[in-house]
Write a protein that binds this DNA or RNA. Structure first.
Lengths: 140, 140
DNA sequence: CTACGATCTGGAGCAAGGTCTAGATCAAGT
DNA sequence: ACTTGATCTAGACCTTGCTCCAGATCGTAG
């Protein structure tokens, strides 16, 4: 717990892929695109070593992406964090705007869901009746 | 109400774009891709005339697309409807599978939303304090 | 030493879902 | 007749977000 303390936290790209769900390709791509807060450490041989810090950031990225944030916004956010303290208001704006978009998206999805559920119900009923009813709307 | 009855229901591509939210480009694209149930009527001059039937279908398409259904699935659905009665079970499967995906998506989004909301809260609190606290985690 | 798997770089390729252009035509207004 | 605006077709082009390839290198196991 003394010598390995810092080094054991450093993860290879494959390990990071494993715990973030991103592919190694995507990880390198994200780095090229400037989506990481800082430069990734390297071994003497040139291999990437990610800190748990990097991994936490990536996990946030994954969440934001999963909720539809474009890479461009993610990059912007990374830049703000990279610049250090002083721009918290802008970070807040960015995140809050995204949260509102997510809320809207949830709303929209729930509306879609109910429309679909209704249609599913119509089909299910139709099938349950064994296609007995002759007047069946072909558009549905 | 007698002579104009049928004709007044027929809409130009621009009008349909207006009430579906799709661009005229997208409408032509959808048609090329076989996403419509039937062929669209034409004027003598070659202009498209959409029935209210077509519009209803397009509105459904918009909802399904908005909830993330890929065009390929939409095309499949259109084919099933085009084939007429007899395949309702498959239509049901298709829609129900999509509904389940939408449910999962809503779940995921709500999880993201709460993570984001929490982060927004952290920033808001930080700003409210006027950056008084010296110990501020730069990663957040 | 050798083989093998993981990683490296730079750049090409891909899938989805449209978007836009060019050049022609149509329909209506002045 | 002439202009204007909407539409037509076929096809090129675009953006997003990765994914994959080639060829080289590193590190560990036998």
């Amino acid at each position: 717990m003394t010598t390995t303390e810092a080094a054991s936290q450093l993860l290879s790209i494959g390990e990071v892929a494993g715990r973030t769900g991103l592919s190694v390709h995507a990880l390198r791509f994200y780095e090229r695109e400037g989506l990481l807060v800082g430069p990734v450490q390297r071994t003497s041989g040139g291999g990437r070593r990610y800190t748990s810090f990097d991994v936490d950031w990536l996990l946030i990225c994954v969440k934001l992406r999963a909720s539809g944030m474009p890479l461009a916004d993610l990059k912007h956010f990374a830049e703000l964090v990279r610049q250090g303290p002083g721009n918290e208001a802008e970070r807040l704006r960015l995140l809050d705007a995204h949260r509102q978009r997510v809320d809207a998206q949830i709303q929209a999805l729930e509306e879609c869901r109910s429309v679909i559920a209704w249609k599913v119900g119509v089909y299910a009923e139709h099938l349950a009746r064994g296609k007995a009813g002759g007047l069946w709307d072909p558009t549905a």
